[in-house]
Design a protein around this nucleic acid. Structure first.
Lengths: 332, 332
DNA sequence: AATTAGCAATCTCGTTATTTGAGTGCTAAC
DNA sequence: GTTAGCACTCAAATAACGAGATTGCTAATT
């Protein structure tokens, strides 16, 4: 439903005041600071009406109004001015992405940290793919009984120590060659269907291959990478001074893999906001940005903060960082 | 100074009561629960004496006694019974170290997590060496313009993407061979003194080498590995309900590299306790265990919790985990 | 019909007083 | 050296009170 111009103005006033102060606002204060042309009584009438519509709430009979989650939603969707990041903030982001970042792990770590630092809320970043393509496999002998298995995919390199037993340098080279021949260019999931691979060459090194495949498959970060940053930011907001609320919020981030949309449907960046978070976590809001990258990869970043969040800034930061990621990954 | 048997009993009672309840204890309660044979008045006299000696303190005229840091220290050093871990706890630790853990990073991560989980306090683990010996260097071509540099040392493997420009497969192999010839068996720090290496073979690939060396040196985790776990455990203790204290404690862990003794002087495990932590952080106690591993490595693990900490358990956990580490690293 | 002024009613918050109860420290007796 | 007894101290809980802010309603005004 469409609100009257004046109702919009008032809702905007309540939200923005709450955003900066965290406190409820009174009709008188609205009049003084936002709408000097009408009386506080009129504003009071409008407030009552907005409350009936579900956008505002009352703590008790005689204290000012606060926006509900619905109110915040309305504000973000219809009333919020787009906020440009300051040059300082843009510079901070820029400086975090100037260094060469070729390693995917570094990229998501840096992203999470940057988002959290600039927005000043906790953040979580995900990058994943439905599958990854194997580009290289190398076996490096370390000591008599231990070897390093390196598998390079378009999702980055996994290196993992393996205990293959006593294998000669020649056998190792031979095994490497065979594995490359069989698997390079294939998807990582091909390793899992090992039963289907029948190869006379494979037979000789069967035991070794089994171990290597086990080693790789056990790495659940091979095609999915999560990173959380800035949990401690919650401590800066009075909403979370109550330690039980703080605990709840932190717990939310510990299960962050359920927080982000991990599949992008669109080439364009898609912003989603959960106002008042989940049912168990009504104190948090979650802003997420998701999009497709080259090669069937999904990038997804989220900001988790209080419902009283600077949504405009959160969105700007997510967009800015997402752009940087796009730049980096497109170059490859 | 040696305390009388009865004073010892009373100090023990105060500490143990405080340990479990967190509250001050009164003379009457001590009588009832710990020393039914003497009157509360006698106990009061002893309490006064113990207070004069600096082991106990008074919040105000009429509330029970709490141990001071000195009191805790005395307790731990002379009065504390050694506490065996329960079979469940031992099993938990065991299960965390059964899987093959060949990767050093995994070891310290697992150690930190295990310590934190079993002791129920925050933990920090360090493993480092004055230097690491290079065992292998490999360059793996990923795409036309990017390569993976793998350097294996006795401190684990570092793999890092590098942008060496357009290098042919043959040149890469050749460069690998030369680097191995020059550096395998040498300490990692040899890479830093690159100026001293004059080699005619090196000249051809000078640019590549420079880049590789930069890549490796920039990894400060090559010979020093830190891990913190369980920061959120602080939230479970009433001492840290006050959010400013919580912040202080978390900050302490963020600078955890200053927390642990990073040089072991002795082959035997050495336990150290800072009662009442540092000057800026009088609410925390820090229990550390340090010892030498094979090959000039130092292992150091710490537990950070409230002064009112279960020191017996903390020490047992650190010892148990340290033993596991010893087992693993000795096997190599 | 919309707006406004006026006012009673409501509720929070800070202050002050009062009480209660636990615990100590001292003294004198054992 | 130990203990009983008791005055004294202090924190924490409770109540009472007033000040201040804000609403919601009603009646007057535009």
């Amino acid at each position: 439903m469409k609100l009257s111009k004046r109702k919009e103005k008032i809702l905007k006033a309540v939200v923005e005041s709450n955003l900066s102060s965290g406190e409820p606002i009174s009709s008188k204060a609205i009049q003084k600071e936002y709408l000097p042309d009408v009386s506080s009584a009129t504003i009071r009438n409008e407030l009552m009406s907005l409350e009936e519509l579900g956008y505002l709430a009352h703590i008790h009979t005689s204290s000012g109004r606060v926006p509900t989650s619905e109110g915040y939603k309305k504000y973000v969707q219809e009333l919020m001015p787009t906020k440009k990041l300051t040059t300082t903030e843009l510079a901070t982001i820029q400086s975090n992405f100037t260094n060469k970042l070729v390693n995917l792990n570094d990229i998501i770590e840096r992203s999470a940290k940057t988002i959290s630092d600039v927005a000043n809320y906790a953040s979580v970043v995900y990058m994943g793919a439905s599958d990854a393509t194997i580009q290289q496999i190398k076996l490096v002998s370390i000591s008599a009984r231990s070897q390093l298995v390196v598998v390079v995919t378009d999702m980055g390199a996994i290196s993992e120590m393996a205990d293959l037993g006593n294998v000669s340098e020649e056998d190792l080279d031979e095994a490497t060659k065979i594995m490359c021949k069989l698997f390079v260019g294939k998807p990582l999931s091909a390793l899992e269907n090992r039963g289907q691979i029948v190869s006379s060459e494979l037979l000789k090194y069967k035991e070794i291959f089994e171990k290597i495949i086990d080693t790789i498959i056990s790495r659940d970060d091979a095609i999915k990478k999560f990173r959380v940053a800035g949990k401690e930011k919650f401590m800066e907001y009075p909403e979370f001074e109550d330690i039980t609320k703080l605990k709840r919020a932190i717990k939310l981030l510990d299960n962050s893999d359920e927080l982000l949309p991990v599949i992008a449907n669109d080439d364009d960046i898609k912003i989603n906001i959960e106002f008042g978070g989940t049912a168990e976590n009504p104190d948090c809001s979650i802003v997420t940005a998701t999009y497709k990258l080259k090669g069937d990869k999904t990038f997804s970043a989220g900001i988790v903060g209080p419902v009283r969040m600077d949504y405009a800034k959160a969105i700007s930061v997510l967009k800015e960082v997402s752009d940087k990621i796009k730049d980096i990954t497109d170059k490859e």
